[in-house]
Design a protein around this nucleic acid. Sequence first.
DNA 1: GATGAATGAGGCTTCATTCAT
DNA 2: AATGAATGAAGCCTCATTCAT
Lengths: 190, 190, 190, 190
Amino acid sequence: MERGDKREAVMRAALELVGEHGFHGSPMAMIAGRAGVAAGTIYRYFESKDVLIRETYGCLEEQLMVSVKAEYPQGGPIRERYLHVCQGLFNYFLASPLEFRFIEQFHNSPYGVACRRDKILGKKEKDIITELFEEGMEQQILKELPLPVFFALTFGPLVNLCRDHILQFIVLDQPLIIRTVEACWDAVKR
Amino acid sequence: MERGDKREAVMRAALELVGEHGFHGSPMAMIAGRAGVAAGTIYRYFESKDVLIRETYGCLEEQLMVSVKAEYPQGGPIRERYLHVCQGLFNYFLASPLEFRFIEQFHNSPYGVACRRDKILGKKEKDIITELFEEGMEQQILKELPLPVFFALTFGPLVNLCRDHILQFIVLDQPLIIRTVEACWDAVKR
Amino acid sequence: MERGDKREAVMRAALELVGEHGFHGSPMAMIAGRAGVAAGTIYRYFESKDVLIRETYGCLEEQLMVSVKAEYPQGGPIRERYLHVCQGLFNYFLASPLEFRFIEQFHNSPYGVACRRDKILGKKEKDIITELFEEGMEQQILKELPLPVFFALTFGPLVNLCRDHILQFIVLDQPLIIRTVEACWDAVKR
Amino acid sequence: MERGDKREAVMRAALELVGEHGFHGSPMAMIAGRAGVAAGTIYRYFESKDVLIRETYGCLEEQLMVSVKAEYPQGGPIRERYLHVCQGLFNYFLASPLEFRFIEQFHNSPYGVACRRDKILGKKEKDIITELFEEGMEQQILKELPLPVFFALTFGPLVNLCRDHILQFIVLDQPLIIRTVEACWDAVKR
DNA sequence: GATGAATGAGGCTTCATTCAT
DNA sequence: AATGAATGAAGCCTCATTCAT
């Protein structure tokens, strides 16, 4: 296995195990085992378990944004852009259940809170979705609400349903996804 | 302290500590300390830590339903009942941040998944909210969607915003709560 | 074994093992084994290995001072008091080789340096020996030297010889001890 | 870098790091880093960490003896020779704090004990200082004492004070060094 | 019933040493 | 000869659970 591969393998193992059993159900030794390396080896690539988790999350977030931005109708009507983003997220998550589970676990942990704080306080670059909401409000197409409310109205249902789908409590097909996303649009539009 | 009191004290301590520090940040010894009992004593009332957590959750869920049902306009219009339930939940959670945090932690853990499975598969009695959605669909006031989608469109944003409020990423006051709940209504109504 | 006994047993085990193998040759598990308790038990009595070491040292230092002060000819001539202290230390150390080894290891470690710094900077109460040197200088019986030099001229040889004796590189009997102590007196006296 | 240079570099790095952080604060990887070689490379020159430490010590001891012998008034009066040796050692150690720290660490470790045993049991060649003491006794200039007592009376204070100086608990200047060495002379002389 | 000291498995991390390149 | 990634044993510490008092 080559150098980069090993790093990848460790992150992949962390992704899988955390997705399946949570952070506390995923000891470093188990991650190492799944990755096919010795326990000590992980520490050549990641300073600590915390760092491993955070970097794994970082990669996932990047992938996610890439997937959302793909074919994004920049400059198109707000509604179209909103539907595009939501459907993109749905499709990404449903196609990547492990990634979804990991991201969820991350957000529901001290890591995630700190991360969210940074984002809301604007320490991270303003993303495509924030822009969308701000522009929508300016154009009086969206309701006049604080940003976190838009995020809640959009990602709250989305995340909820992806989880239910992955846990097989519901089956989401394209038509249902579209109808759900349109319901979210009803929530945010004026 | 009497028998029942001791049991209560332990659950209260578990609630507080888990709300503050999560399951893994709340050792049994610490729960015992907070409850004012010896560590071993907890095991006279709860078979294991898992059981303690689950029973504590059970109590919280009951309280929650009581609070939602209070002054519930049974027989009134769907919209009014929907708004009543949502506002009730918002107000309950914002007034009980520890309870909220505990419930959230619970739902994002293996316990929570099993619990949710039982509920969706109908192993538990049909609750007031399910009734509301089913009736609304019958009357063609609500959209035609699977139940889990209604839950997602409603509780997704609600939980999201309560968390943000408790973490002080946003300040929810009554007007904003109302506008948010009305946005959720827009999502579910036809 | 009773509560106090267990604490004692752990310190005793630490004393013995550190004396024999040094700090790094004395893992907590080995100390526990020697003390006849489980590894985790040590942590009921001592917050960490560091604390265990420091408290063990503290006890030894107390014993040492008790032994030095016993029959101390307070108010007697400087020379007599000096010889008394030195002989007391020699006899204590030779009778307690494990204690000696531990104290030595402690002094030659980061712990010991911090401890020494506190003592020299006067953070600890002025001890009987410091008094002796200061009084001796005032009375012009001792040479005019900084305190650390007196300590070096006295404890340097003393510690060196105790080590050699314990390692059986030399055999110290009472006459030799007396002659050695008198040689030290020659070094400090005017 | 040539073969010899690399070996030197490793020993130099070991010296520095052990002097600064002790044996256990100086992992092989860190020594390698400081020396500018790969970790594995060290093992081409030294069988193990133990061997590296011992050989490094050996070099230092040689240097030390060279420094002591420089301008040594061979054949001169005992007192002059004694003062020369002691002052030489003081000056060497104060000018080479890392070397001093390393030597000290070495002596206070299992390595050091074995080393000392060999020296005292005469397995090593008789050194200049031993000669000095033996000659001084013969000439009845020095007290009649076993050799280890002379060593203790001389090196005990010396090492003690060098440490205090390096740790900045005292400042040794030439006059104070001279007065201290003379005090040691008072201890050993008849 | 209540206590809380004791247990020991298990978690994270370090580091001397090896070995394929 | 040199490299440095990989190994895995071993260290410190935590904590759910038990049991003698």
